[in-house]
Structures are given as C-alpha cells and as structure tokens.
Simulated assay, not measured.
Amino acid sequence: MLIKLIVIALLLFIIVNLVRAGLVMLNPDKPEVKMSRYLGRRVMFSAVVLLLIFLAQALGWIEPNPRPY
C-alpha cells in the first residue's frame, strides 16, 4: 500500500511541475525562472515512477492485473 501512495504522490508532483512550467510560459515577465527547469523535473520524476513500478513488480511488492482470458 505504501508503494502505491508513493507513486500517487510522485504523479501529483509531476502534474504540479507541468502546471508551473505552463505558468512560466504564459508569464514572460520573470526571465530568471526557466521553464526547462520544471519540464526537466517532470521528465526525471516520470522516469523515477516507471523505474519504481518496474522494481516493485519485480520484487513482488505489487501484482499486475490478472489476464482477462
């Protein structure tokens, strides 16, 4: 259950970084804040989420859905 909460928290953090990058893009008055910083974080945490899911499945912490047939 803890692993699922961690994945959900990371996914929410990814969405927050996407929104922050969008706000920086729409507000060009602040040149000291780079949009690529937020987009880079988003990509990095997306990779972390994928690796965490693969690792959790390999270690048996989570189970995939059963086959539908």
Rank of each mutant, 00 (worst) to 15 (best):
K30F: 11
L11S: 15
A56D: 05
F13C: 03
V24Q: 14
R41Q: 15
Q57C: 02
N65C: 01
S36C: 00
E63R: 09
I3H: 01
E63C: 01
R42L: 14
S36M: 07
L11F: 07
L59W: 12
L18W: 12
P64C: 00
L2M: 07
I62H: 03
Q57M: 12
P68T: 12
K34W: 04
I14Y: 02
N17P: 03
L55Q: 11
G40D: 08
P66V: 01
I53W: 00
E63T: 11
M25T: 15
L26A: 12
M44H: 03
E32N: 10
L52R: 00
M35D: 06
G40R: 01
N65D: 11
L51C: 07
V7S: 05
A21V: 08
V7I: 15
Q57Y: 07
Y69I: 13
L23F: 12
R41A: 11
V16F: 04
I6P: 01
V24D: 07
G22F: 05
F54L: 15
F54S: 09
Y69N: 14
P28F: 02
L51N: 05
M1F: 06
A21T: 10
F13Y: 10
S36R: 14
R41C: 05
I15C: 06
M35Y: 08
A56L: 06
R67E: 09
S36F: 07
R41Y: 10
R37N: 07
L59H: 07
L10I: 09
G40F: 02
P68F: 09
V7P: 02
A47V: 12
L2V: 04
V48D: 05
R67G: 05
F13E: 09
R67N: 08
F45P: 03
Q57N: 12
L12E: 13
R37S: 07
L10F: 08
M1S: 11
N65A: 14
